[in-house]
């Protein structure tokens, strides 16, 4: 049966032992907070930080603890950009789509990543190596176009820089090589 927006059954089956890990992590987080709905977002953020995403059992456990319908937790998790319902890739690429970035080639950078990785924004490469997202303005407009690579902000991302970023993950580079590469880029 087709669904409206999210295909049903896309929630990946849990790995072996993952359910136990989820339960433990969530219990740990819940202990830090008073069981009140106003703590829901901080709890979800912290659980996601531990697990990388919000698996179904985690949302149900949190809902039960806060005594709210599970669908409310689900609603919240689907409402806010920060929450992900799927396991992320090992490296997360976030292409900024703020005005400044968009105007000077953010879209081009995004398309380059899509082409190079063979995935679309919002997807993870089959081996779960990279996940690609677009993000709203990260506030580094003067460095546009900007890509956030695993929490690190990369400025002036031209198509060639896209290749450089991806290449830097291919073999374990010496620390500092990344920065040196970037500098060389800017100087040209």
């Amino acid at each position: 049966m087709p669904s409206i927006h999210v295909k049903r059954g896309v929630f990946l089956p849990l790995l072996e032992g993952e359910e136990e890990l989820i339960r433990k992590s969530v219990s740990g987080v819940l202990q830090e907070y008073e069981a009140a709905q106003e703590n829901l977002i901080p709890i979800l953020l912290q659980v996601q930080e531990m697990l990388g995403y919000l698996p179904g059992p985690a949302m149900e456990q949190i809902a039960a603890a806060l005594k709210i319908p599970a669908v409310d937790v689900y609603g919240l998790a689907t409402f806010y950009n920060q929450f992900r319902l799927h396991p992320p890739g090992k490296h997360q690429l976030k292409v900024c789509m703020g005005t400044a970035c968009y105007m000077v080639g953010g879209r081009i950078a995004l398309e380059c990543f899509e082409r190079r990785l063979g995935i679309k924004e919002g997807e993870t490469t089959p081996g779960r190596e990279f996940s690609l997202e677009r993000v709203a303005c990260v506030g580094c407009c003067t460095m546009a176009p900007v890509v956030v690579v695993d929490e690190q902000v990369e400025g002036k991302v031209t198509p060639t820089r896209v290749d450089g970023i991806l290449l830097s993950f291919e073999k374990p580079a010496a620390p500092g090589a990344e920065a040196a590469g970037q500098k060389g880029e800017d100087a040209s």
Binding site: Q37, L40, I41, L66, A136
Partner: peptide, 22 residues
Amino acid sequence: QGSGAFVCGEATALVRSMEGKM
């Protein structure tokens, strides 16, 4: 910490999100 929704810049939406709602 907000969790990524432009609309939360609107005052009533911001407060609702602090209350653990959409």
